[in-house]
Amino acid sequence: MAIWQWAMLALAGVWALQSLGVWLQMRHYADVFKGVTEKYQDGFVGAGNFRGRFAKGTIALLVVTPDMVVRRVMTMSGRSVFTKFKRHEQFEGASLDKIRSNPAILGEGEPGVAEAVRKAVEQIDKARREPGRGPGLSGLKTLNA
């Protein structure tokens, strides 16, 4: 085989490995999100992300009670598909306003974390403002409805 054929074969192999890694990371995200929504039926869940071109990408999950007390804060930050969620227990039990006023306290100098947390808080605020949408999964439409 010619050198260009070996190069194309190597490129296809690397692409297949990347696709497998992305699939595994998406499955991990879906499992964590499903676990959080099943464990906490009341309240609100917000998910935010930050996509950095050359910086680390970040995903933040925030779970709050109906009276806006933080139940769970998790962030996933990194460049690798092997990155996992990290729980921030020190912020659990705090009010959402504390995190809303300073989302950078979670990131400690990482602007991507602060931006992802800010977007998660915005998503929670938007869900609270929607008419007819209560806490939890009550606002979801089912297939039978």
Rank of each mutant, 00 (worst) to 15 (best):
residue 1 M to T: 12
residue 2 A to T: 14
residue 2 A to K: 12
residue 2 A to M: 09
residue 3 I to R: 14
residue 3 I to T: 13
residue 7 A to H: 06
residue 7 A to R: 10
residue 9 L to V: 07
residue 10 A to K: 09
residue 12 A to K: 09
residue 12 A to R: 09
residue 13 G to P: 05
residue 13 G to K: 06
residue 14 V to C: 10
residue 15 W to I: 06
residue 16 A to G: 07
residue 16 A to F: 11
residue 18 Q to W: 10
residue 21 G to I: 01
residue 22 V to C: 08
residue 23 W to Q: 13
residue 23 W to R: 12
residue 23 W to F: 13
residue 24 L to E: 08
residue 24 L to Y: 08
residue 25 Q to M: 09
residue 29 Y to C: 12
residue 29 Y to H: 12
residue 30 A to D: 12
residue 32 V to R: 02
residue 35 G to R: 10
residue 36 V to C: 10
residue 39 K to V: 07
residue 40 Y to I: 04
residue 40 Y to P: 04
residue 41 Q to S: 10
residue 43 G to M: 09
residue 45 V to P: 03
residue 46 G to W: 01
residue 47 A to I: 09
residue 47 A to K: 04
residue 48 G to H: 04
residue 49 N to K: 09
residue 50 F to W: 00
residue 53 R to N: 07
residue 54 F to N: 09
residue 55 A to H: 06
residue 55 A to M: 08
residue 55 A to E: 08
residue 57 G to D: 05
residue 58 T to G: 08
residue 58 T to H: 05
residue 58 T to C: 15
residue 59 I to C: 03
residue 59 I to V: 09
residue 62 L to V: 06
residue 62 L to N: 03
residue 64 V to F: 06
residue 65 T to G: 06
residue 65 T to N: 08
residue 65 T to E: 11
residue 67 D to G: 07
residue 67 D to S: 15
residue 69 V to P: 07
residue 69 V to I: 14
residue 70 V to E: 03
residue 70 V to K: 02
residue 70 V to G: 05
residue 71 R to Q: 15
residue 71 R to K: 13
residue 72 R to G: 04
residue 73 V to T: 02
residue 73 V to Y: 01
residue 75 T to D: 00
residue 77 S to G: 06
residue 78 G to V: 00
residue 78 G to A: 03
residue 79 R to L: 07
residue 80 S to P: 05
residue 80 S to V: 03
residue 82 F to R: 02
residue 83 T to V: 04
residue 86 K to E: 02
residue 87 R to Q: 07
residue 87 R to K: 08
residue 88 H to E: 05
residue 88 H to A: 04
residue 89 E to V: 06
residue 90 Q to L: 07
residue 94 A to T: 10
residue 97 D to W: 11
residue 98 K to Q: 12
residue 98 K to I: 07
residue 103 P to M: 03
residue 103 P to W: 01
residue 105 I to A: 00
residue 107 G to I: 00
residue 107 G to M: 01
residue 108 E to C: 05
residue 109 G to S: 04
residue 110 E to I: 01
residue 113 V to A: 02
residue 114 A to I: 00
residue 115 E to F: 03
residue 116 A to C: 03
residue 116 A to D: 00
residue 117 V to Q: 02
residue 117 V to N: 02
residue 119 K to M: 11
residue 121 V to Q: 01
residue 121 V to N: 01
residue 124 I to L: 07
residue 124 I to W: 01
residue 124 I to S: 03
residue 124 I to F: 02
residue 125 D to I: 07
residue 125 D to A: 11
residue 125 D to Q: 15
residue 129 R to Q: 15
residue 130 E to W: 06
residue 130 E to F: 08
residue 133 R to H: 14
residue 133 R to A: 13
residue 138 S to R: 14
residue 140 L to D: 12
residue 140 L to K: 14
residue 143 L to C: 11
residue 143 L to G: 12
